[in-house]
Structure formats: C-alpha cells, structure tokens
C-alpha cells in the first residue's frame, strides 16, 4: 500500500507558531493541497496580511509578499495587472479584511480583479490580543468589548460574503468552515473552485472560512468548535453566495 497522506509540496516542513486548536493550519493545508493539485506552485504568489497569519509565508514553499494591514487586495491588484499570468491569492483575517481593509477588498472585488482571497473569519483580532472585530458576535466578550458586543453602539457583525455578493461584477463568493472534517471537505472544494476560476481568468474569487480562536475566545479547542457551530454558523450561513455565469 502506498502513502495515502503526505505533506503537500506547497507546504513547508516547519513547526507551527499558531496556538493549540487554531484552525489557520487547516486552512493553510487546504490552500497548499489545491495549489499542488492544480500544479501552479511555480507561478503562484501569496500575499500575507497583518495579523496572526502575517507569518503564513513560513508555511508555504512558493513566492510570497507581506502586505500592510488590509492592503493585500491592492497589492494583489498590482501584481495581477502587471503579471496576469501569475496566480495570486491574499490570505486575510477579519480585522485585516473587514475593518482596516474593507475599502481595498470591496473595490478589488468590484473591479473583478482576477485573484483569490482566503478570508479567515474567527470573530476576533488575534495577534493584537483578542480585540473586537467587525465580525465579532453580539454579546461576545473581547478585550475591547469587555461587557459584550453591543449592537446599539457598534452595529451588528458584518457578513462579508453576503455583502460582496451584492456587487454586480461577476465573482465567486463562498462561505465555508474549517472547524470540523465535514465542513473541511466542502471548504477544500470551494478553494479549488476559487483558484480554478482565477486560472480560467474568469473572475474575482473569495472563500470566507468560519474559524475558531480558542486562545482569544478563552475556551478549550473543543468548546471553541462547539461555540462556533452554535453561535457563528446560524449568523454566518455556509454556502455559495455568488457564482460566475
């Protein structure tokens, strides 16, 4: 019997810096698997965000650029416009994409830039220490919403996938999750579609991944999965919100 589970070539052999129970590792692996499967490692450029995943380039074995907070879609635009033959993706968290970088992601999506965004939604700022994000759930406690997020003061969480899906420009917009194997299989499929659409030069593509952050949520990894499933998934339903014609 041959080897059935191996490290993708696009994934580096290194020790993780992410916290126990963090789902970034799963997302990284899915991206690496898809890149291997599509055979595009030699022409792929990834763009790292600011946040926990700023060092995500340490886990990949192809070209990478490191962006400033929220600006990854603008950098991806710059690359794709001058090198349309490269495969480009941004990997961004919710503070990076949905707060400081909201302008950049909306305009890049609306221009139909031919790159892919992997959007990690774990309802909190990770690297800066658990502050409230635009995707933080109502009543969720964070270090800057110690009494729970109050919609009357800061509004309801932003549903990025739904919002971007209202844009008229053709795009592939999907929300999946990486918190359990049954979701992960679908997430992988969505990521594969997103990169394929890019390779076919068809449209902007974004896959939002509902994720956990046990450390900043103050939970065990098991409780975090339970919380995400019970609290987040009803508000952030999974599925495809926009597919290109």
């Amino acid at each position: 019997m041959g080897k059935t589970f191996a490290r993708p070539e696009a994934l580096a052999e290194t020790i993780t810096h992410y916290c126990p129970g963090c789902t970034h590792g799963v997302a990284h692996r899915l991206v690496a698997e898809v890149i291997d499967e599509l055979g595009i490692r030699g022409r792929t450029v990834g763009i790292a965000p600011v946040g926990c995943a700023v060092l995500c380039y340490n886990y990949f074995t192809f070209d990478f650029q490191e962006s400033a907070h929220g600006r990854a879609p603008a950098m991806a635009t710059g690359i794709k416009r001058v090198r349309p033959d490269l495969i480009v993706f941004t990997y961004q968290g919710d503070g990076d994409l949905a707060s400081i970088g909201m302008g950049e992601i909306v305009h890049a999506a609306n221009r139909g830039e031919k790159f892919t965004t992997i959007f990690i939604n774990n309802a909190v700022y990770g690297m800066t220490g658990g502050q409230m994000a635009p995707t933080t759930m109502p009543d969720q406690r964070t270090t800057t919403s110690p009494f729970g997020r109050k919609a009357a003061e800061v509004g309801m969480p932003i549903r990025v996938a739904e919002m971007l899906a209202t844009l008229q420009t053709p795009a592939y917009i999907s929300r999946q999750s990486v918190i359990k194997p049954k979701y992960i299989t679908k997430a992988r499929k969505a990521i594969q579609k997103a990169f394929t659409y890019q390779m076919e030069n068809r449209c902007f593509s974004l896959v939002e991944l509902v994720s956990t952050c046990p450390t900043n949520w103050g939970m065990t990894p098991v409780d975090a999965v339970k919380w995400a499933e019970e609290k987040m998934l009803p508000y952030y339903p999974l599925g495809e919100f926009k597919t290109p014609a």
Binding site: I47, Q65, A74, M75, T77, G78, I79, V82, G103
Partner: peptide
Amino acid sequence: GVFLQGESEVAVSYMIFGAAACGARV
C-alpha cells in the same frame, strides 16, 4: 501598458508595492 485608477492613494501605493515586488517597472 497598464493603466489603472485606484480607489484611493492608499490603495495605489500598495498596487505600486505589489507590482514592484513582482519585478515590474512601475
């Protein structure tokens, strides 16, 4: 050549960064 009107000067500076970082004159 490539001409693109960005959504803001902030975004433009990163379009420049992205393009320059992948080796283009920009």
